[in-house]
Structure formats: structure tokens, C-alpha cells
Computed example of a mutant assay.
Amino acid sequence: MVAPQGSLGTWDWKSIVGNMFPLLIVLSVIVLWAGITLEGAEEMLEQYAILAVMVPTMVDMGGNLGAILSSRLSTRFHLGTTELDPTDRVLWANVGAILALAATIFTALAIGAYALGIVIGSPLPLSTLLVISLVSGMSVAAIAIVFSFAATYGSYRMGIDPDDTTIPIVTNVVDVFGMVIFIGVSAFVLGF
């Protein structure tokens, strides 16, 4: 059975490309901002090499958290089990799970970075790494949650399949904010 044109179940490549191409152009420009931010922090990252090691994980994990929540929300929309009601306990459980996962991941990142810093001779105190990692990580998780809800609900309301749009939107936006927040928090904590 073929889904009617315009429904969320349409697998028409022209529709997908038509929706995604302009979005990908805009997102590419946004991601350029992250690269410029990273280049501006070159001196700090050279002085504290362990922070440069943390950057890819910090950015990647933020996007992954957003992708997880976006996928869960998209699935609930497709199944017709959500309307984004603020009293929906399952929605709040998903948000809580993302925050708990973020706290776990970013704590582990700080501990791993501390251990690696000792090995490579670029140590920072564990307390400093925990502050940088948890403040940055939890901020990125909060942004991932907001953009996951916005992208999923916005796509759904516009009649675009959220499965086609949410992951690129959320991962790119969270990557940029993750980079900016991580560099900003690191610079603040280290006095740069």
C-alpha cells in the first residue's frame, strides 16, 4: 500500500531532498561557527592539551543525546501516543533519562580525561575537569532536549516526517552549542 502524497509516511526522494537540501545548507553555515570558535581557542587548547582530547567526545555526546530523544519523540508521534502534553509522564521520564545519561557520561569523561592527562603529561585537577565537563555537558544536554522537542514538534506540525529532519537539526545545532559552551566554560574556569 502506498501512502498518500503529503503524509508523514511518504518515501518520495524528491520530497525528502526538497525538504532537506535548504536545511543542510543552513546547518552547514551554523557548523562553520563551531569551527571558528575552536580555532579561536587554539592557545588554550595548546596549553591544556587534555581539553583538546575532550572536545570530540563532548560535542559527539551532546548530539547523541539529542538524537536519542528526537528518535523517541518521533516514534511516539508516528504511533500517535503523544501530543507533547506537559502532564505526560512518559515525556518527563524521557527527559529525566537523558539528563541522567548526560550526568553519567560527562562524569566519566572528566575521570577519563584526568587519567589520560596523567599519562600524557597534561594533567588538570580532577575537580577542574569535573566542573568543566559537567557544566558544559549538562548545559549541552538541556539544549539538546529543547531542540529535540522543537525540531520534532515543528517538523510534525509542518507535515514533514520528523525522522528526516530531527537528527540533522539536533546534532548540528547541539554540536555548535556544545563547542561554544565547552570552550566558554573552559576559558572561564581556567581564567583565559
Rank of each mutant, 00 (worst) to 15 (best):
A100F: 14
A3L: 09
I120G: 07
S136E: 10
E43N: 09
T57F: 14
T81I: 13
A49I: 05
K14I: 11
G96R: 08
V176A: 10
V31S: 08
S74L: 09
M138A: 04
N172R: 01
V189N: 02
A52P: 00
D12Q: 05
S133Y: 11
G9R: 15
L65A: 10
L109W: 01
L73N: 01
D163K: 00
T82L: 01
S15V: 11
I105Y: 08
F192K: 07
G80D: 01
I167M: 10
F182V: 07
I132G: 06
A67C: 10
L126Q: 01
L69Q: 08
P123R: 09
P168D: 10
T152G: 13
T152W: 05
N64Q: 09
T81L: 05
P86T: 01
P125T: 12
W13S: 14
I30T: 09
G96K: 12
P168G: 11
I36N: 00
R157N: 06
W33N: 08
A142W: 12
T165F: 03
W92E: 06
V180A: 15
L27T: 06
T81E: 13
F192W: 15
V90Q: 09
T171N: 06
M54V: 11
G178K: 12
A34K: 02
I68H: 09
I143K: 01
L45I: 13
M138C: 09
H78N: 10
Q47R: 13
I25C: 02
A110N: 07
M61E: 10
S155Q: 03
T128Y: 08
F147H: 08
I132E: 10
G137I: 02
A113H: 10
M44Q: 07
I118Y: 13
S74Q: 07
S28F: 14
G154Q: 03
A115S: 15
S139V: 08
A113T: 10
F147I: 15
G6H: 05
V29W: 11
F177C: 11
G117A: 06
V131D: 03
D164I: 00
L32D: 05
F21K: 01
A113D: 05
G137A: 04
V174P: 00
S15G: 04
A108P: 06
I132F: 13
S7C: 03
I169R: 02
D85W: 14
I120W: 06
A113G: 07
L130H: 04
R89E: 15
L134N: 10
R89P: 11
A102H: 01
A41V: 04
A103L: 15
N172P: 02
G66Y: 03
S74P: 04
V26P: 00
A151K: 00
M138T: 01
L84P: 03
P168L: 06
A52E: 05
L190P: 03
M58V: 14
M20F: 09
